[in-house]
Design a protein around this nucleic acid. Sequence first.
DNA 1: CGGCATCCTGCGGGATACTG
DNA 2: CAGTATCCCGCAGGATGCCG
Lengths: 148, 148
Amino acid sequence: MKPPHAAPDQRTGSVQAGTKHAQASEFSGKVDQGGSDCMAVSSMLQRIGDKWTVLIVSYLGNGPMRFNALRREIGNISQKMLTTTLRNLERDGFVLRTVTPSRPPAVEYELTQLGRCLLVPVSGLARWTLENIDRIEAARAEYDAKEG
Amino acid sequence: MKPPHAAPDQRTGSVQAGTKHAQASEFSGKVDQGGSDCMAVSSMLQRIGDKWTVLIVSYLGNGPMRFNALRREIGNISQKMLTTTLRNLERDGFVLRTVTPSRPPAVEYELTQLGRCLLVPVSGLARWTLENIDRIEAARAEYDAKEG
DNA sequence: CGGCATCCTGCGGGATACTG
DNA sequence: CAGTATCCCGCAGGATGCCG
């Protein structure tokens, strides 16, 4: 693994404005996006950035749910992907799977503590998305307009 | 249809930050059932959850960079993917591309205001990842051990 | 009900070569 | 230097079928 920011000169590890945009942005907190951490972030984003993970975690945020309940709620997920995604979530310790041996068997999924606290940063990104999606779509429209 | 609304034991919250965005537009992709806000988040995660986006945005967080500088810094990205990713970032309004017509031509990329403020929630996720990666890997090891 | 197993397709993304 | 154009491959992920 090659650590990002192998940049020799600078090892600040924070987003500092370049020469032109030196003025502070509207946010006050410092952003330490620049260090060797970006690999971890990148990996995490790819991990939860797949098609269904966040959606499922969100639904499970409401409380425990059974397999087909989850499936019905989401609506258009194949059971293969639901199974796969739940398995991965279970493996990472985000979701707890509980089998009740009845007939037919009942399987309940619920968020673990780790899974619930994952919702915190994710909801931060959610908030940001909802706050800025208009600007993003406007930018897209403008860009596409210029292309023809 | 009740939209997923997370209730972690802390007030930090849900994946949903608001309920006003009715229009789905292209961000919702092809899935069109109820929880449109979750879809927006999910789409955003997929958008920035690709292989290079966050990495590039992180590097650009240090200031403007030229194409090959960026390329050298990242190290193992194909120029095709660098171009593609930068184009997408430009289209979304995250990155500004400035061409200086010299010989050879110089092209500089820098984060826009929107791009910089994206770093805020992303670094939140980064922080969370670094704080919890040990638990995740422990959970994985345990899970894998039980599987054989 | 809650799964695996299998097949198949689309597309993300790498390698390579060519331009202005 | 900063791209564009092709070709190619792996794999995420959908459809379908069978099983305890």
